[in-house]
């Protein structure tokens, strides 16, 4: 018996993984000769930070919308495909909207709800814009130059690196399953594999965590990471 819904895993698991992999790791825009790419990373970060602050303090929806349009304009000038940009920023929205804004809508404070959603959208878009137009290694370096402790920056960098590794593991696992069963996985069976895989992934991440810590110790790490001055 073959269920159409075997696509369930394909869509939900692999689709999600690929999406996040693309969303987090797409660096192609960071190297395009656009407006924001040309600005020195530290100045750019300061600029974007102040725009985010502005969007937090602005109290009227129309003014916020202007700021949002300005953000889209900046994206366009930085040669980022608008569809890509919108997809990337809007996909994170429902989570915020649902968790925080829904109660506002339900209690009739619709205007407040709208203001909130637009505000989150605007500040999020600016943050994404910064991320998209700066290679992530430079972003980490910029954080360092803003006085953010190296420990924090290093942890962030490692998270980034190993999320990628896990994305690859999931993708490869999916391909391995597919190559063995020819893509037609029974819905229930597929779900079972997915559940099992997530459990083992969790285990794997604990093991990886220990192994990486060992790898750091082995090269002399003592708890205070040091970096090269350049």
């Amino acid at each position: 018996m073959k269920f159409k819904s075997h696509n369930y895993i394909q869509r939900s698991l692999l689709g999600m993984v690929s999406f996040f992999k693309e969303a987090i790791f797409a660096e192609e825009f960071a190297f395009k000769p656009g407006l924001l790419q040309k600005i020195e990373p530290r100045i750019k970060a300061a600029l974007i930070l102040s725009l985010i602050l502005a969007s937090i303090f602005i109290k009227t929806t129309p003014l916020l919308l202007v700021l949002y349009l300005f953000c889209l304009l900046l994206a366009a000038l930085s040669r980022i495909s608008l569809i890509f940009f919108l997809k990337r920023t809007w996909v994170f929205m429902p989570i915020f909207a649902l968790i925080i804004a829904l109660p506002l809508f339900f209690t009739g404070r619709i205007q407040e709800g709208v203001l909130f959603v637009v505000r989150v959208l605007t500040s999020l878009s600016f943050a994404v814009l910064l991320g998209l137009t700066t290679p992530h290694t430079l972003l980490l370096k910029t954080m360092r130059s803003f006085g953010i402790p190296q420990m924090f920056v290093m942890t962030l960098g490692m998270c980034y690196r190993y999320i990628f590794l896990f994305a690859e593991i999931i993708e490869n696992t999916y391909l391995a399953i597919k190559s063995r069963v020819g893509g037609a996985i029974h819905y229930k069976h597929g779900q079972h594999i997915a559940t099992w895989k997530i459990a083992s992934l969790w285990q794997k991440s604990l093991q990886l965590n220990k192994d990486i810590y060992d790898a750091m110790l082995s090269r002399g790490y003592t708890g205070e990471p040091k970096v090269l001055d350049e």
Binding site: G157, M216, R219, L228
Partner: peptide, 23 residues
């Protein structure tokens, strides 16, 4: 290490190479 994915944990190759002597 047997697995380079364990051995290399820095954002760039260069940072990974200098990690040991820096520490």
């Amino acid at each position: 290490f047997q697995s380079p994915d364990v051995q290399l944990f820095c954002p760039t190759v260069k940072e990974d190479i200098v990690f040991g002597p820096l520490q």
